[in-house]
Design a protein around this nucleic acid. Structure first.
Length: 747
RNA sequence: GCGCGAUUAGCUCAGUUGGUAGAGCAGUCCAUUUACACUGGAAAGGUCGGGGGUUCAAGUCCCUCAUCGCGCACCA
């Protein structure tokens, strides 16, 4: 017996050494896996953002996927797990800008585009190193030879190719439309990056000629010259569509036009409203339908424009009170009510969203196009479909299997409400849109007027066009655009590589529910459009890791936990096991350090079980084909094997939490507490006691202990790979020094 | 407003097609040169959120209410 078993198990001494052994073995790369393997099993790591360090959520995700990967590898499959990181355009740039502002008091405009991008890249690189170190610490058996970064050369080519192809199919277009403008971040954001916050405010009823209109935002009403009501509203039947009405308004007399539109809710307020198409999506739609002109009231910085007259230049947040006073003085306020509504804020900066009409790039989700090739049932190659249809059919046909009913419904519900996706962002770090304009520079349309752009020639292509005077689009793409390509960009697309042909669609994806819409749906969209395939076969949505009291880990609460600290204290095995047990996949986990401590004890228990078995079976040779079990042992073998059959099925159903607990329980309370304990009577505890068993009882029991130890080590390996490998490598029965990670699963 | 999820032991959570309520942690009592104190043994602890229904049988299926959490939409 190895001397090391005389001391308690020490994860810190072991884990880095074992990870190195695994890496050097080459088995993380499926091309080096031993034995005949045909069936593939592929997972692409959800790429962590290069914004700093990993948190427990990543640790959980790594544990989950690595357990699945290790299981499938031991099942004899050709297992590929591709690592990568995400540039996370806005998130990373914002982080770096914040640091620069803090340390040097400079803004991004002080630095300029090139310098800022350089700084962000440096930060991203450091962050990448930290993150990859952490992922290794977790024991993740990733194929590092296939590492991908969303901004590397291959992935950039994938992004530009994807953009160009979608543009050529007419699905990407440039248009003046209402966007969610973040005045703090100075960029557009997508609908999915909005967080709604409840706000108590006043609701004003204003006199607008013969009408009373309701509004919560009187400060936006300067230019409102269309008054809208439902065509069936009998209260206003005397007014005809298109009718002109002279009235007195905030800054003087105004000619208003009556518009009848069925988008109006007759039951809300007075059933009459005026519209501000430049700053409201609903109003914009109404204005589009009736071809009304649109006037900007608020600029990009959230200040009022000239149309506000005496209020010109005032910040919108300060303007309301002043304007209300004027309205009151003019006798235009009919009444005021207390009112609670939700305001849209930018998830990242916390700023209140000011909708604006801006020229942006969009992906049309409802526009029909001919799909050249499709493997998705219900969508035939060469027929007309839409991106929305692809997203729907991929899941409804179960080409993408979403076993969790609730998330599946949420997905469909989201698709129903999906609008065109705004993919351009006014930041500098990210994939610059592959569009070039022939003109001196992009027109700075400070006032954002529709149609005041210079006439320019536009070129859309993978590389810059030849010739003088071409200037590339300033905007970069929404980070989820490149993320959407992730399952196949990581395999070398647009080249039709061997990997792509062999491993796509991938087998399994396990993202947090937070990004079901942001990411999962985009991958399905992109994979469907570009490959005619689904991106993955099974999606298991997982929950969030929360603090013990159920609160979210966050900087403001200062309750963050660095997984590395936990690993240093208890070992990565304990952390993995602690994260994977106790909660079904999909529910939130409340993180309890005590639980992790318990699994550290478990690793030590396993260590001591081994120590006992090695010392008490020293005189017996391991016999893999042993069959002369005593009646009692035969029963124990049968019970054990029934458990293995059961957990194998559950592993295949991704019910890792059940498996981990059952193995824990079997190892500790059946194997150690009962089987090992009663073996003391049979085998004795050498060198002190002689056992009371007969020779056949002794050999049967010795073999039972050794066999079961092997099986326990194998089945626990996906969960606690380090300690099981460390034990396995020093077992005298493992004469060939094979690594446990490529042993066969015992079922 | 629409939808989803949760509600089970003190705490954190499991509970597969309906068939006698489970685990971990904490707590209680006992043991102490034991493979392991990072230990062992024993016991205790639950009208499964409330109410109603289906069924021979309901934690599980249906209806309803309550509380909490989340998602989507949004009314000016």
């Amino acid at each position: 017996m190895h001397d090391k078993f005389l001391k308690p198990y020490n994860p810190t001494d072991t884990e880095d050494k074992i990870y190195k052994l695994w890496e050097e073995s080459g088995f993380f790369n499926l091309d080096n896996l031993p034995g005949k393997r045909s069936e593939t099993f592929t997972v692409v790591l959800p790429p962590p953002n290069v914004t700093g360090i990993l948190h427990l959520g990543h640790a959980y995700e790594d544990s989950l996927q690595d357990a699945v990967i290790r299981f499938q590898r031991m099942r004899g499959k050709r297992v590929l797990w591709i690592p990568g990181t995400d540039s996370a355009a806005i998130a990373t740039q914002a982080r770096v800008e914040k640091n620069i502002q803090k340390d040097e008091g400079k803004s991004r405009h002080d630095l300029g585009r090139d310098e800022l991008v350089k700084r962000v890249r440096t930060f991203a690189k450091e962050s990448e190193n930290t993150i990859l170190g952490q992922v290794r610490k977790m024991g993740a058996s990733l194929d590092w030879s296939r590492y991908a970064y969303t901004l590397d050369e291959t992935r950039t080519l994938a992004v530009t190719t994807a953009f160009v192809n979608m543009y050529n199919s007419g699905l990407i277009y440039q248009g003046d439309r209402i966007v969610n403008w973040d005045p703090k971040g100075q960029t557009t954001i997508s609908d999915d990056e909005i967080a709604y916050k409840e706000e108590k405010t006043k609701f004003y009823y204003l006199k607008y000629g013969p009408f009373t209109i309701g509004t919560a935002r009187p400060e936006t009403k300067f230019g409102d010259k269309h008054v809208v009501m439902h065509p069936d509203d009998e209260r206003y039947s005397e007014y005809k569509h298109g009718q002109k009405i002279e009235l007195e308004w905030i800054n003087g007399p105004l000619t208003a036009t009556v518009i009848k539109d069925s988008a109006i809710d007759m039951g809300f307020g007075t059933g009459v409203m005026t519209i501000t198409p430049w700053h409201s999506a609903v109003d914009f739609d109404i204005a589009e339908r009736h071809k009304l002109d649109k006037v900007q009231i608020i600029d990009k910085y959230g200040k009022l424009l000239e149309i506000a007259g005496e209020f010109y230049g005032i910040k919108i947040t300060e303007a309301r009170q002043k304007i209300v006073e004027k309205l009151r003085a003019k006798g235009l306020i009919v009444k005021e009510e207390e009112y609670t509504h939700n305001i849209a804020t930018a998830e990242r900066t916390g700023a209140t969203i000011e909708p604006q009409i801006m020229k942006q790039w969009w992906i049309a989700v409802n526009k029909p196009f001919i799909i050249p090739y499709s493997e998705i049932p219900g969508i035939e190659s060469g027929t007309e479909t839409t991106l929305k249809e692809i997203m729907r059919k991929a899941v409804s046909s179960e080409q993408v299997n979403m076993p969790q009913e609730g998330f599946r419904n949420a997905y469909f519900h989201w698709i129903e409400n999906l609008h065109d996706w705004c993919i351009s962002r006014q930041i500098w770090f990210g994939h610059r849109i592959p569009v070039w304009y022939k003109r001196k520079s992009k027109v700075e349309s400070e006032k954002l007027k529709v149609g005041n752009e210079e006439k320019t020639k536009m070129y859309v292509g993978i590389e810059a066009p030849k010739g003088e005077g071409w200037v590339q689009e300033e905007d970069v793409l929404d980070t989820w655009f490149s993320s959407g390509l992730w399952t196949f960009s990581t395999m070398g697309w647009p080249d039709i590589t061997k990997d792509l042909k062999t491993f796509h669609p991938t087998s399994f994806m396990s993202p947090a529910y937070e990004i079901l819409n942001l990411w999962v749906s985009r991958m399905i969209m992109m994979s469907g459009f570009h490959l005619g395939q689904v991106p993955f076969r099974t999606v298991m949505i997982h929950g969030l890791v929360r603090a013990k009291d159920g609160q979210k880990f966050s900087k403001s609460l200062n309750n963050g936990i660095d997984p590395i600290d936990i690993i240093n204290k208890y070992g990565a095995d304990a952390l993995r096991m602690g994260l994977l047990t106790g909660t079904a996949i999909g529910s939130d986990i409340s993180f309890d350090e005590n639980k992790i401590k318990g699994y550290k004890n478990f690793a030590n228990k396993l260590w001591n079980i081994t120590r006992f078995i090695l010392s008490s079976t020293e005189t017996y040779k391991y016999d893999p084909g042993f069959s002369k079990w005593t009646e009692a042992d035969k029963k124990l073998v049968a019970e054990r094997d029934a458990l293995i059959t059961e957990i194998t099925r559950e592993m295949e159903e991704y019910k890792l939490y059940l498996v981990a607990e059952k193995l824990y329980h079997y190892t500790w309370h059946t194997f150690a507490d009962k089987i090992v304990e009663e073996s003391k009577t049979i085998l004795g505890t050498p060198p002190v006691n002689e056992g009371k068993g007969t020779d056949s009882e002794k050999s049967s029991r010795a073999q039972l202990l050794i066999h079961t130890l092997h099986i326990i080590l194998k089945t626990l390996h996906p969960f606690i790979p380090f300690v099981t490998e460390e034990i396995w490598l020093t077992l005298p029965h493992n004469t060939e020094q094979n690594l446990l990670m490529v042993e066969n699963w015992p079922a």
